[in-house]
Simulated scan of single mutants.
Amino acid sequence: MEWRDEGILLTTRRHGETSAIIEVFTSAHGRHAGVVRGGTSRKIAPVLQPGAQLDVTWRARLEDHIGSFTVEPLRSRAAAAMGDRLALAGLNAVTALLAFALPEREAHATLFTQTERLLDLLGQGELWPLAYLRWEVLLLEELGYRLDLGACAVTGTTEDLVYVSPKSGRAVSRDAAGDWADRMLPLPDVLRGIGPAPDNEVAEGFVTTGYFLKAHLAQDLGTKPLPEARARFVEAFTRRL
């Protein structure tokens, strides 16, 4: 069995004396693991940094084996992240969430393309938080937790939509929420792609996407908690408000 693809490095762990097991997110083969022979060497180890774009070739005797990777670096994103605390926290959040949430070996080509574009914006502090919020919305959608924010779930109106139902993920208008308003999640305009994107609205958006990541996605995956890297990024972002 053999295939070749581009991948974004998600995780690396030592394997034996000189090898490493890596997980990459590829366009055609999804989240995929494999052994890199000599992955701890001075030549290869610097290439195997989270977020790195790699040309990978995977080989195995049988399809269900872990197999082995040969890797060629396409571009590193470490430099853009290391000089900026928020960028580093964001990079760690993206790779941790993908490693946590993606089913193994299931292709998500649209999500791969948007992840690649998001990571290429690292270091552009004015653009990155909004791009990351939109990426979380897409991640939820790709994994079956689409937020339906176009019209009120109760009345059907498209006016004065200010809440999201924590149960259904649908928009709710101010009037329709009534006595349930304090149990609703915020729906800032930025989540609907309307108007400018002030940081306080982006922060409200993180409250809503974070709820669905934790209470729906993580819960459905079993006992694993949502990666702490996501909370650390949101905390780093909100500290600058």
Rank of each mutant, 00 (worst) to 15 (best):
A236M: 09
R61Q: 12
V202A: 07
L213V: 06
E142T: 10
A99R: 11
L127F: 14
L74V: 15
L102Y: 04
T57K: 15
V162A: 15
G34Q: 04
L191C: 02
R192M: 04
R14V: 14
E235V: 06
A28M: 10
R232K: 12
E116I: 02
P198K: 10
W128I: 08
V24G: 01
N92D: 08
T18V: 08
Q53D: 14
L121M: 15
G178A: 09
L217K: 08
H216A: 13
A78Q: 13
P50D: 08
V202F: 06
D120K: 09
R117E: 14
G30N: 09
H15N: 13
W128V: 08
E116W: 13
V190L: 01
A81T: 03
Q53S: 13
E104R: 15
I66P: 00
L187E: 03
A45Y: 10
T158A: 15
V162S: 11
G195P: 02
L139V: 05
A60G: 13
G67S: 07
L91D: 04
L241C: 05
L48W: 06
G123S: 00
R85C: 00
T238V: 14
E126P: 08
G51T: 02
A78S: 11
E235H: 12
R117M: 10
Y211K: 00
L143H: 04
E6W: 10
T26P: 06
A236V: 00
D5A: 11
Q114Y: 09
E17A: 12
T115Y: 12
T208F: 03
V207Q: 14
L138A: 03
R61E: 09
A99K: 07
L121N: 10
L97A: 05
N92I: 00
V162H: 12
A101H: 05
A153C: 03
R77D: 05
D189K: 01
I194H: 10
R146D: 08
R174H: 09
A197N: 01
G144E: 07
L98R: 06
G210W: 11
G195I: 04
T238N: 14
V172I: 11
W3A: 07
R239M: 12
D189P: 06
F100V: 03
L127K: 15
T208C: 08
A229F: 07
H65V: 04
W3K: 05
I21Y: 09
A81P: 03
T12K: 15
E17W: 00
L241I: 00
L91C: 05
L130N: 01
A109G: 10
Y132G: 03
D160S: 11
R42D: 07
R42N: 09
F112W: 15
Y145A: 01
K224F: 06
V164L: 07
R13K: 14
R232Q: 14
E228Q: 13
A176M: 02
L130D: 01
G169I: 03
P225S: 12
A93L: 08
R239E: 15
L9R: 05
A87Q: 03
I22T: 12
F212W: 09
V190I: 08
R192Y: 02
A197I: 03
Q49L: 05
D84N: 14
M82R: 15
F69G: 05
E17S: 12
G16P: 04
D120H: 14
A45M: 10
R42E: 07
R192E: 04
L118P: 03
I22Y: 09
Q114H: 13
E2T: 09
D5I: 06
G193P: 03
G123F: 02
E2C: 07
S173M: 01
